[in-house]
């Protein structure tokens, strides 16, 4: 989608229109306001979810994106998790806590952030 104004703005660069800035910033801040999660809890949730995914696939941990988006008063958790490769045998954890020892395929790096 292209508007004449966009073309003109590209030819004669000036500051962008502030209306879209306002909308974009509001949508971001409201997604967080609405769920009322502290950054600490959000980070903890991110780490736990990553740890679970890491049991099945090898992740590109540096390019994982984790965000909250809001639409029609419904907030969604949106995660973009690039996969390096799928593990041949998933490392199954049982809740007893002794599982890591019994799963030799464990990728130490991927599980680094897994909480106890």
């Amino acid at each position: 989608m292209l508007r004449l104004m966009d073309l003109i703005n590209q030819l004669f660069p000036r500051s962008q229109n502030s209306r879209q800035d306002a909308k974009r910033r509001l949508q971001f801040v409201l997604a967080h306001d609405r769920v009322d999660l502290t950054p600490q809890i959000l980070e903890q949730m991110r780490q736990e979810i990553m740890a679970v995914i890491a049991r099945y696939v090898e992740l590109d941990t540096d390019s994982v994106e984790f965000s909250l988006e809001s639409d029609q008063r419904m907030t969604a958790l949106v995660a973009n998790v690039p996969i390096r490769r799928v593990r041949k045998e998933p490392t199954i954890l049982d809740d007893g806590g002794d599982a890591p020892e019994s799963s030799p395929q464990r990728d130490a790096e991927a599980l680094e952030s897994q909480p106890n």
């Binding site: 229109n17 502030s18 209306r19 306002a22 909308k23 509001l26 949508q27 409201l30």
Partner: peptide
């Protein structure tokens, strides 16, 4: 001139 949110923008948000 796109320097204020419209009613539609506010309603959508």
């Amino acid at each position: 001139v796109n320097d204020m949110m419209t009613v539609a923008d506010v309603r959508e948000i």
